[in-house]
Design a protein around this nucleic acid. Structure first.
Lengths: 379, 379
DNA sequence: TCCTCTAGTAAGGAGTCCTGACTAAAGGAG
DNA sequence: CTCCTTTAGTCAGGACTCCTTACTAGAGGA
């Protein structure tokens, strides 16, 4: 609807963006190579490279081509363009790393937390990791944070919903990182980042509409629609704890209560007792079989909700017990008897939430660099 | 990620797009006015207008300015640019009209169908309406069709889901219109178009995330996420018939079966008996009260699903019985006792599906015209 | 020693947009 | 009736961007 205003500045900005983007993908290129890859003429590329070198966004690496013909100079993104902080916060600890616009990791800090360490410990670990990475890897221009709890879309703060386990605790990542990160702090929950990872380099590449159901201590879900993780108004898409489903006795109850009814909750908590559950999944007696059936029925209800509101091409099952083969078998059997069905896949990527968050960080850092070359151009 | 290649052709295309867009919004303007509104200089606009007049996209209307100063010529979009067919197909009949790129309606054809007239009758009515409008309103460059049944996203054909009433019947609008409409035929179900209408000119303007629940003979729903109607992989987002919810006895059952359990289905059909239901909503005895409670509980379950998978800012209730005040009251009471809640609004627009489809048609026609000015430019 | 091949530069041209001055013509003031 | 004001549109010139073509510089191979 809104066509940008034509201007010569726009053209220049577009040329520069082409150059920067191709350098983000290829770490060192001669001007001739840039011209070939972008399809833009050599003289134009030469001007753009000169302009960007002047602006400090691109540098002559000093390396030269070898082989026949005139020696060429390799150019690359300037090294001091800054990095992005990528952090994952789970009940077990904080993992943080810095990535640059090329997607290279520049350091990693792991801080273990013992269970129920409290939010102060998590905040401190995050802040300390950021400080260390900021020193070693250069200025942190933005941060992308994954948290094992629902995240408020507007503020980036963690939210405690009723009857949901609050794994990481009250935490305000933008506030914690305000001092060490100069730019925006993007926070989302781990399941959403994991879904992004599976979409970009996992088991559902090319599938623009899918649902990722995470089954662990908490119950979470991510909805990818038209190739983008959907967050809804408050960022609470995927909070399936209160979805109505079928309980073990056939009565309608909230999904989270199924685990209470099956005696699969940790003491004095609303968190799922994962070791116990895994144990049951591996057992073959009649009681274990009943539990499997009850779980399949309950999860079938959740999937009916997913079908109704997200119409996925595929459902990805992840989390500590979500990808258990016997569980998937049981759910598939249940779905086969349902009026509508959907293919199931087990998630496969290791540390998917970090992978997804990293991809977002690289993307955002790239956009920031492109924008910084032409602050006034908008299109 | 993909920056367009800079070129002078791109600039020219952008100028032309600015001119065309402003003429779509303002039906007649002098070149000076176009320059003022777009912010582009007068000489550049003059060139563009000349180019577009040459191409036949813009015409000198012959009208001249009055008042002080030199007389100016008013230009407008060429009248023969074609129109778009907008059609709504319901069990009661077919309503069709033609709209031009300015959003003006150029004719309307209403064809009543008696209930269960069959798909041949509907197809014939649609085809006949298109033929008539094509003759009277000029060539139909595209069509936007609303149907009161689920629509397959890939093919545009209507889909019959198990246990859902098939109101309009097997119908393949793209095939029916292939002869009379030269361009694409966009088909979607009426609830999705209604949601778009409420978003653009109804009760949820500016709300980027909401859910529209349509309660009539069929049970449907639309999900708007980040300002766009979400359709999912197959176009079946919003098909809530098989969502698990609570039945009158508290047992988990599919939403559609609640109406069977409450004896609120039409004979030999899975369609809701709307007159009977409205009657009960207006009655005050104990039995009616029990039905209201049961409906509120069941719909509460559907809304729990919406909260889990769409996280709407607001829920819009529409359809013949969806916006009944006593029903809304009952649902609100139920939600107040639930762990999570959401504001409810009654839908208000008349013929919302036609309004939404019309908006899409105008948008698409505009894009087609813009593209036709520069077929090779891509950005 | 000469030829070939390649990165980068120069020159010139076409095209786009802009500014500022100019022209044409209508309405109002005196 | 004449002159002034006001406005739409054009003209001329300039700045700038991209492109094509031709050229230069310099390394490796014959």
């Amino acid at each position: 609807m809104t066509a940008p205003k034509p201007s010569l500045e726009l053209l220049r900005a577009l040329t520069d963006e082409n150059v920067l983007r191709v350098l983000m993908a290829h770490d060192r290129l001669t001007r001739a190579e840039i011209a070939a890859r972008t399809g833009i003429s050599k003289p134009t590329i030469s001007e753009s490279v000169q302009r960007l070198e002047q602006a400090g966004l691109v540098v002559d690496t000093g390396e030269r081509t070898t082989g026949r013909g005139r020696v060429g100079s390799y150019y690359a993104l300037a090294p001091h363009l800054g990095t992005a902080l990528v952090a994952s916060i789970t009940p077990h600890g904080v993992v943080a790393e810095a990535v640059d616009a090329r997607g290279r990791t520049h350091g990693e800090v792991r801080t273990a937390l013992h269970a129920d360490a409290g939010q102060e410990a998590a905040a401190e670990a995050l802040g300390a990791a950021a400080a260390r990475l900021g020193e070693s890897a250069g200025p942190l221009r933005l941060a992308v944070v994954s948290a094992a709890d629902p995240v408020d879309r507007a503020t980036g703060r963690l939210v405690h919903l009723p009857d949901a386990p609050f794994l990481v605790g009250a935490l305000d990542p933008p506030a914690v990182l305000a001092g060490t990160v100069t730019g925006p702090v993007l926070v989302d929950n781990d399941v959403n980042w994991a879904a992004r990872a599976e979409y970009e380099q996992g088991c559902v590449q090319g599938v623009d509409d899918f649902v990722y159901l995470h089954l662990g201590e908490g119950l979470g879900c991510a909805v990818v629609g038209d190739g983008v993780v959907r967050r809804g108004h408050g960022g609470l898409v995927g909070e399936v704890a209160h979805l109505y489903t079928a309980g073990p006795d056939g009565r309608a109850m909230a999904f989270t209560e199924v685990f209470a009814a099956l005696d699969l909750r940790r003491d004095a908590s609303t968190a799922v007792d994962v070791p116990r559950l895994l144990d049951l999944l591996d057992t073959s007696d009649a009681r274990a079989e009943r539990v499997r059936l009850a779980l399949a029925h309950a999860i079938g209800g959740v999937l009916a909700g997913a079908l109704a509101f997200a119409d996925p091409r595929t459902v990805v099952l992840g989390g500590p017990w979500g990808s258990h083969p016997r569980l998937i078998d049981a759910i598939e059997e249940h779905l086969a008897r349902s009026p509508r069905s959907v293919p199931l896949i087990a998630a496969a990527l290791p540390l998917p939430e970090l992978t997804g968050a990293r991809a977002r960080a690289v993307e955002e850092l790239g956009s920031q660099i492109v924008r910084s070359a032409h602050p006034t151009a908008q299109w």
